[in-house]
């Protein structure tokens, strides 16, 4: 018990004293995760939208595939992308392995099915009348799409936030593709794993507190957004 309280106390001291190592790790984590989320959203939202509104053969199959990919473990993605980005792999010449960009590639693959899948369900939930209304008021295909996405914005935003929460707290991809290089690819989760390996707890606990704070902030944001959503309906 003494041990835990002492670690906590030291962790808080570290947080308050704005320890540069700690905050650099937080910065790397946030930057990589935001980047992954941004790219996955830029790809996943249009993809999910198209799947939701188009009628095509095998649509159910595609949705089932997306839902299956949701459960893909991070280490599987890590392994797959490692094989791709390793110098011996197909994209080895890019020299991306053990860089933040490699983590972003893996994390984008991790959350693309999330963003796309949740966009599909968010857009599918949108009343058919929105499409009809936009069209009858003179909207072209793109304008109609924008009108529908606008109505689904809360659901989509929720999925983006959930995706961000997923990448910031994952470790498999960051460890395997980033390599936990100090001051370069060391993220909150990989740093915590290393500290555990070292038998150190102070930095790990401090990072844990930051991670919890980020998760809490994301959840509050999600609640607020869903609150608007509920009210707005």
């Amino acid at each position: 018990m003494d041990f835990l309280t002492q670690s906590l106390a030291e962790a808080f001291t570290m947080l308050v004293s704005l320890d540069p190592e700690l905050y650099f790790i937080v910065w790397v984590s946030l930057r990589v995760s935001l980047m992954s989320t941004l790219i996955a959203s830029a790809m996943g939202i249009p993809l999910g939208f198209l799947i939701a509104i188009r009628h095509f053969r095998g649509k159910r199959g595609v949705i089932t595939l997306l839902n299956t990919l949701l459960a893909l473990p991070t280490v599987v993605i890590g392994l797959f992308v490692y094989a791709l980005l390793s110098r011996q792999g197909a994209l080895g010449h890019l020299g991306l392995l053990y860089t933040p960009a490699a983590i972003v590639v893996g994390q984008v693959i991790l959350i693309l099915p999330w963003v796309a899948g949740f966009t599909v369900s968010a857009v599918s939930r949108i009343d058919e009348r929105y499409r009809r209304t936009a069209m009858t008021l003179g909207a072209g295909p793109l304008q109609t799409a924008i009108a529908i996405l606008r109505e689904a914005r809360f659901g989509i935003l929720g999925s983006v936030i959930a995706a961000f929460g997923r990448v910031i707290s994952e470790i498999g991809i960051a460890m395997m593709l980033g390599g936990n290089i100090k001051g370069f690819t060391r993220t909150m989760t990989t740093a915590m794993a290393l500290e555990h390996n070292k038998g150190e707890f102070v930095l790990a606990v401090a990072l844990g507190i930051v991670l919890l704070a980020v998760s809490l902030a994301m959840n509050i944001l999600l609640q607020v957004i869903q609150g608007w959503y509920g009210e707005d309906r």
């Binding site: 929105y130 209304t133 009108a147 606008r150 707005d232 309906r233």
Partner: peptide, 10 residues
């Protein structure tokens, strides 16, 4: 066309 139960953009 004005729908039977028109829907408003939010």
């Amino acid at each position: 066309l004005v729908d039977q139960h028109p829907i408003m953009f939010s």
